[in-house]
Design a binder for these strands. Sequence first.
RNA 1: GCCCCGUUCGUCUAGUGGCCUAGGACACCUCCCUUUCACGGAGGCGGCAGGGGUUCGACUCCCCUACGGGGUACCA
Length: 508
Amino acid sequence: MFKRNLKGLLLPMSFVPNSVRVRIAPSPTGNLHVGTARTALFNYLFAKGQGGTFILRVEDSDQERSKEAYVHNIFDSLRAIGIEWDEGPDVGGPKGPYSQMKRLPLYQEYANKLVDAGLAYKAYETSEELTAQREAAVQSGEQDYKYQRPTPEVLAEQQANPTRQPSIRFAVPADRGHVVYQDLVRGEVSIDSNLAGDFVILKSDGTPTYNFAVVIDDMLMEISHVIRGEDHISNMPRQIMLYEALDSLNLLKSPMPAFAHVGMILAPDRSKLSKRHGATAVSDFVAQGYLPEAFCNYMALLGWSPPEGKEIATLDGFARQFKLEKIAHSPAIFERDKLNWFNGQYIRQMTPDTFFAIAKPFLSAEFDLAQYDKPTLVMMLDAVRNNLTTLSDISETVDYFFKTDVVQNSEMVQSVLMTEEGQNVLATFERDFLPKADFSSPEALATTMKDFIESQKPLKTKAVMWPIRVALSGRTHGADLSKTLYILGTDRVKDRIASARQRVVSSS
RNA sequence: GCCCCGUUCGUCUAGUGGCCUAGGACACCUCCCUUUCACGGAGGCGGCAGGGGUUCGACUCCCCUACGGGGUACCA
């Protein structure tokens, strides 16, 4: 039994995987990038929607730039946004190892087989020589430089030199013509295989190049669908030719996967999202006070939209509706506004206790929480969270509950307190409200407050509340006033009202 | 330069030849609610890059131009 796969290769039926296997293959040369995270998310949604397997593979073959710390950041970030892998370096799995540096013998084995079969060969030029050749070609006005195989004489000379460590290059078949494949998101894509010359598959230090490693790894890990960024489209001819070469040698261990290239994520200036735009790593956003779930939810909607229309949903909810064909073809711009909105939605969705637990680290980083008991802190946070965009907004929203001196220096503040009207309100508040106010519960305070506002008619509500609010918090808006009074407690309220009255007298 | 991919409101998108006087979301504006601010609710503003075809009929199909992105490595 045979099945014709996308490229038209004939493959035994036993190769056809009975389940979806996808992977995300980040290289630990930095913290988990937003773009990589989104790709991981799409892979994950597809896998979960299909009942498939999601694999994490670490592409650490770039020894210069790979760092262990980044590996941990990638793991943590992925898990933070709710993505768990079924196979990976830390959890193991049947197709391991899952780090490329541990797979070196595999690449070398396959590279050697290609050499033995004459489909690849050893090349002895140094990188310096190659760079020089490339530059010379550009100088002389040559349009596109291609690697030139050395003449037999030169080759013999190179081989005779024991200091030269050979790399292995794949011999691009001269007559291969256009490589055509069906992209699951874009449809038919056709690229001339002869644009690039023979390419390196194994570097002289024995590590594989990206194009070779992915093919070997995807094949050995029996990946069924490769979902990745569109920056990889131009690699398709090389990878397809590699699959073809392997197949011609009967070395293909699983059929060539299907490919889906998704549009990239761009910065607001339409360039690639990079450090100069600020945060680029998932962990950067988390540190800024974005909830991983909200962040993930936002990312899911970059280049894809749920057919059912509901934009806020869990990963499982999205997975049910996820279709590769529905992924957008064009790049998406990463815009903060909508992310902020999602974050606010998630902040408001939580129970007060959950919110307290999540917000606490952001609070305790700034203030000493010991003066309040937990129920009070929960109330405090619950009272302000409707106003929050990110978790890091919390400290400035509640600072007047912790600081001893209330800052009252803005123009607006002065204009509220320095008026005769404002002063009268404060005087009346001090005289009528404070003595009879019951500070034992916010509810009791709310009732008294209502009465007080009523008693100040025809003054508008704002005219009554603002001077009080400014005296207590240094700002014209904030948490529910009765809760503010309750949390502050009778002593601090009295002090702040009194000092507000004094301060104004002295400065007016 | 060359090759590849792309182009619907400011942004994310729905739309696969007639359902489109182009739908939704964010942002923005207005109003309502309200113990402030916010949240929430109701409205509004705003778009098929341009030009040629094909067709009885194009946002949808084809071609060209413009613009954007990606690639052009012993990086991934």
